[in-house]
Design a protein around this nucleic acid. Structure first.
Lengths: 228, 228
DNA sequence: TTTTTGTTTTATAAATTTGTAAGGGTTTTC
DNA sequence: GAAAACCCTTACAAATTTATAAAACAAAAA
């Protein structure tokens, strides 16, 4: 939609014109929609955070809903690319160990992008055309990756057979809630969820609690191996 | 819902008056605030669902925020009472088994009241006076119950020492997300999260995955005992 | 009956919300 | 250089939002 090839003012310090306004709108919309939901945010608020005037939103996007969809698409496509790229780097010899490493990827991923879990929380609680669109377009394809390895684990017998709907919600919630609800964690225990120690601690907790327990024969902890 | 002792128009079909309007407002506010959040719901919408006019809300409640707090207090006090009552009925001989049964209580509880998890999700993602109030007033006291048994398990050595903030978020999220995000589950897998089979299946999944794995020596599954 | 009290509605004010219209400026193109 | 295309702003309309004021209405008290 925008033309990335050239920015107009090459020295670039006047109140920025050009296609980056569109990007700033999307960035503002992402942070606001994620924590307040579609109905909870006004285009005026988004405009203020983006540093532009409200009607400009309607120049770049048909309406509020189109802006919301563009926001989701921008975030989810970035994320699914990054995640796939990281997962592809993993050793795929031992399936069980692969699953654990994949989950560590996932945790570091939701730690970096808490908005991901926030959007799912916002939209997942009520039926709506937006939920339907988000599931069809993004969520279903992403979760299907997990389904493949689940099926393999079941048929090869190294995974406990817990129903997939329960399992996937349980695992993904375990991984993401700690980061998506960082303010709650802060308020409850004074802990900054996004700091490296906490991310590592949560990664360990998820592997220990949620991942190892779905394997019939748990594998040794990284930290144990390192400690001995 | 309306006062049973007397209805003003004795034939009982006039638009109900009396103090139950306050109750209807609270019920409407609960269902709407839970899924759309504080900013996402207007008092006009609440009034429409409650079947009264919008200014009546301001007769019964000082303002929108006071209504929100009254809604939370009504829900959380009901829930914490019910939950405590059920937990008190449990056998408290074997601590590990007690923990498992307590978690089954908790799951059946969040299955009955998905709004509980929804409110926490709504408010937990951004710092606000509302979050602060909710944590101080309700959440902290409720979670302290879990903290007691956690401490006991750690000091007696039958619980793996995973940091409490990670553990409590992980466990509660595992238990509640499946029900709080029922529309998402429905959209993804066509499954009705609130039906009895699914509740039982999730209860099993939580015990199997999230609870047993925090014990150093897991205890036998109910279903295994029954199957053999 | 009359008064009082408590509950609810109509009317309305001030601010905010989404979206459109029309017009400046800047580049780009011819 | 003029025309066209593009990005952005001011001005504004229609609907909605929170909250208040005043009046209607019903039940209880006097």
């Amino acid at each position: 939609m925008n033309t990335p090839e050239m920015s107009p003012g090459e020295s670039g310090f006047s109140i920025e014109r050009g296609p980056d306004a569109r990007e700033r709108i999307l960035a503002a919309a992402e942070s606001l929609f994620a924590v307040r939901g579609f109905e909870g945010v006004s285009t005026t608020q988004i405009a203020k955070v983006a540093g532009i005037t409200q009607p400009l939103i309607h120049y770049h996007f048909k309406n509020k809903e189109a802006l919301w969809k563009a926001t989701i698409s921008r975030l989810f496509s970035k994320l699914s690319q990054e995640f796939s790229a990281e997962v592809k780097m993993l050793n795929h010899k031992d399936d069980r160990r692969y699953l654990v490493e994949m989950m560590r990827c996932y945790v570091s991923f939701v730690a970096r992008y808490p908005q991901y879990g926030q959007f799912i929380m916002r939209e997942g609680v009520q039926e709506s055309p937006r939920l339907q669109w988000m599931v069809e377009e993004w969520l279903k394809p992403m979760l299907d990756q997990f389904h493949d390895i689940y099926e393999k684990g079941i048929s090869e017998g190294w995974m406990k057979d817990i129903p997939f709907p329960q399992l996937i919600i349980l695992i993904t919630a375990s991984a993401s809630q700690f980061f998506s609800m960082a303010p709650l964690v802060k308020e409850l225990y004074g802990v900054d969820a996004s700091c490296p120690e906490q991310v590592l601690a949560h990664s360990d907790a998820v592997v220990e609690v949620a991942v190892n327990s779905i394997l019939r024969e748990p594998i040794a902890r990284q930290s144990e191996a390192a400690a001995v």
